[in-house]
Write a protein that binds this DNA or RNA. Structure first.
Ligand SMILES: Nc1ccn([C@H]2C[C@H](O)[C@@H](COP(=O)(O)OP(=O)(O)OP(=O)(O)O)O2)c(=O)n1
Ligand SMILES: [Mg+2]
Length: 693
DNA sequence: CTACACATT
DNA sequence: AAACAATGTGTAG
């Protein structure tokens, strides 16, 4: 506020620092962005963190310059060619539009903060943030008025709002309330996809039909039911696909809803003036690049600049951008995917003491190994992640001949990787294991499928548009199946963080955009479905409706993890830990879902009784519930097994195909697959080569 | 495959 | 004083 200087000559260095904290977000209406910018800058400048941010920004600026130069070099002939390419792709994409489904996205308002206020009403009306001085998970709307928001360090937030009250995170609480909301969601779509503890996607097509009522009415009813059951408010978005529904739920947040009719014209009108940054998958960097290089700020401009996008970006990236311009998104259903990697990392005060670093490494290996054991995982690729004292991140990986999972094996190989980096001053060490064996995909026919998939790639790939992905399994009401993980961490005191897993919604792609290509993906998803397994045997039993065509969603598992770490704070019972670190309850529990879900759905009636066997377990017994669901899962798996022949299964089994290369999407772009050149050879040549010089 | 970058919660 | 953690995905080489 007051930057009282009227003088225009005064230097304002903070204006050059681009924080993400001033981006539009619900509750940021009357915020004095200039002040936030200045305070964040003042609190940041001179720090190692800040210097690294500046370095990264400089690289992005370079990237933009480079792309600009390439765009400027395109000849009239090139542009003419790409215009044709773009027009053709737009037509193809548009032909995949499916306006037959009605998707609803629910997003709880200031979730963690709202839950904390329920348990401590005295917080009502006061600016409050959930998290620590190091990191804030979220803030209530009173605090947001000051510019305080998720992902902001607490010490900076306090500067913006001196009276800010800090409340440590308590995942058990959030999981409990999340389960309550899911119970409501389940009534509208038993196959709903949970995107995180506080978000979910529901395909309400069927409910609307059966009850002959509109999406708006369902939204209204669902919101009031959620409020009745939990005392919490949420915001809803209803649209023809998930990508749009997600955007819509943010429009009238908090405690509001927005319905986008299943009408092509309505969609195009809506999407046209929409800032691209509102689309999931388009973050700070992508926004800057599209704006800086092509002057694109709104979705409709994606179509207008289609020729440039096709000329400078990879096929998948440009397809994604074009589909955004058309307002396309995922309308299909499920598929659950299994985790592809598991990792653990820790931040500590920077040190260059090799012995100390090796000790930290061993600690992390221990935690990771423990997490892997909980899920019976073992993998061949080990990746060491390092963050230097200057915040520079490095990764070093090795792919082994054999699968490893023991702490000793991990430490052994990780030490070799670290050794090559010494001497070095680090502030974080992390380890990730991927290339699993376990899950392997067993189940019927995977191998075959993969192969086939490969072939199809070009072909069918087709996709269906949109895609999102999702994840989650969905359902299950209670159990949180899905798992979301949230983690909180703590550093010194308690910091917390968290996060959940993903939601997969729409796109992913991204990547670095670099000059040539970048991003991509869009559709995708498809993939094989696992269904084989699950659906087969089990599915048969229950299925709710069965249908949706194929399997319906399967569950997904998820990942969750936890780590514990040093001490710190609380942790609850074990695995799930409390705040600080993350936690999530479940862990292995998730896996079950998928099967459970499909088949019968294990559900906690009245929130305490198992729908399958009547056993009573209050939702606060997170772990116990997991074990319980595991038990049922195991039952099902056995049944399945006998049928399919999987043999070892363990709890998690199912695996999905996954394969490394990405089957699903196909689009990965040329890169990996040599073959695909078919469709875009021309583009590729021009794009990369000729223009690039 | 490896390394890196981006995104999301 | 103080800037997380976990996962997925794309891409270049
Ligand atoms: N960087 C982030 C983003 C989110 N969260 C947590 C806290 C949120 O309560 C929860 C849900 O995320 P949302 O993005 O939906 O944010 P909120 O629900 O808090 O607020 P909103 O009202 O904007 O949805 O996830 C977090 O810990 N760190
Ligand atoms: Mg929310």
């Amino acid at each position: 506020m007051e930057e009282s200087e009227s003088a225009s000559d005064k230097p304002r260095p903070w204006q050059s620092y681009h924080t993400v904290y001033t981006n539009a977000k619900a509750g940021m209406d009357g915020v004095d962005k200039e002040k936030v910018q200045r305070v964040v800058y003042e609190m940041s400048k001179g720090s190692k963190y800040f210097e690294n941010e500046e370095r990264k920004e400089a690289l992005i600026r370079q990237k933009i310059e480079h792309m600009r130069a390439r765009a400027a070099k395109l000849s009239a002939a090139d542009l003419s060619h790409y215009q044709k390419v773009a027009d053709k792709r737009i037509l193809e994409l548009d032909s995949t539009r499916d306006l037959s489904r009605i998707w609803l996205h629910v997003d709880m308002d200031a979730f963690y903060a709202a839950v904390e206020t329920l348990s401590n009403p005295s917080l009502k009306g006061k600016p409050m943030a959930v998290g620590s001085m190091s990191m804030i998970s979220t803030a209530n709307y009173e605090a947001r008025k000051f510019g305080v928001r998720a992902a902001m360090p607490g010490f900076i937030a306090r500067e913006l709002c001196p009276d800010l009250i800090f409340v440590p995170t308590d995942f058990k609480k959030y999981t409990y309330y999340s389960d309550l909301t899911r119970k409501v969601f389940w009534d509208y779509d038993p196959n709903f996809m949970a995107a995180s503890l506080d978000e979910a996607y529901l395909d309400i097509t069927k409910v609307c039909e059966e009850r002959s009522i509109t999406g708006a009415e369902i939204a209204e009813e669902l919101r009031s039911r959620v409020h009745e059951e939990t005392g919490l408010t949420c915001s809803v978005g209803v649209a023809p696909n998930r990508l749009l529904a997600k955007v819509c739920s943010d429009i009238n947040k908090p405690n509001g809803q927005f319905v986008l009719p299943n009408d092509r014209m309505a969609v195009m009108t809506f999407i046209s003036s929409l800032p691209i940054r509102k689309i999931g998958g388009i973050g700070k960097v992508t926004e800057n690049i599209l704006k800086g290089v092509f002057g694109i700020s709104t979705c409709e401009e994606m179509l207008q600049k289609g020729s440039f996008l096709c000329a400078l970006f990879s096929h998948s990236s440009s397809d994604f951008f074009l589909s955004v311009g058309l307002g396309l998104g995922g309308t299909d259903t499920p598929e659950a995917r299994f985790r592809k990697s598991i990792s653990s990392e820790r931040t500590f005060s920077a040190t260059e003491d090799a012995a100390l670093l090796y000790q930290k490494l061993a600690d992390i290996a221990e935690m990771l190994s423990a997490d892997m054991q909980k899920e019976g995982l073992s993998g061949r690729t080990l990746t060491l992640k390092l963050k230097t004292a200057s915040f520079e991140v490095r990764t070093r990986a090795v792919t082994l001949q054999k699968y490893i999972s023991s702490s000793d094996d991990i430490v052994k190989h990780a030490s070799n990787l670290l050794k090559a980096e010494l001497p070095i001053s680090l502030r974080l060490i992390g380890l990730r294991v991927s290339h699993f064996n376990e899950d392997k995909g067993g189940v019927s026919g995977d191998p075959t499928q993969k192969t086939l998939t490969t072939f199809f790639k070009s072909v069918d790939a087709s996709r269906r548009t949109g895609n999102d992905q999702r994840s989650l399994g969905s359902d299950l009401s209670d159990l949180h199946f899905i798992s979301e993980k949230e983690t909180a961490i703590s550093l010194d005191n308690n910091e917390t963080c968290h996060h959940e897993f993903g939601d997969p919604f729409e796109r992913k792609h991204l990547s670095d955009m670099d000059d040539k290509n970048c991003i991509s993906s869009i559709n995708a998803c498809e993939m094989e479905k696992i269904d084989e397994l699950s659906s087969n045997k089990t599915a048969a039993m229950v299925n709710t409706a069965d249908v949706k065509e194929r399997t319906t969603k399967s569950p997904k598992r998820d990942l969750s993890r936890v780590s514990e770490d040093d001490s710190s704070v609380q942790r609850e019972p074990e695995d799930s830990n409390p705040d600080r670190l993350n936690k999530e309850p479940s862990t292995s529990g998730n896996e079950e879902f998928f099967s459970l879900n499909q088949m019968e759905m294990l559900f906690w009636v009245d929130d305490y009784k198992c729908s399958l066997c009547g056993a009573e377990l209050p939702s606060s017994f997170v772990e116990e519930r997991q074990e319980h669901s595991d038990f049922h899962l195991a039952e099902r798996l056995q049944e399945e097994e006998s049928g399919t022949g999987l043999s070892s299964l363990i709890p998690r089994l199912r695996i999905v195909p996954e394969d490394c290369s990405g089957s699903q999407n196909r689009r990965k772009k040329h890169k990996s697959s040599p073959k695909q050149g078919m469709h875009l050879p021309i583009d590729s040549f021009f794009t990369k080569k000729s223009s690039g010089q």
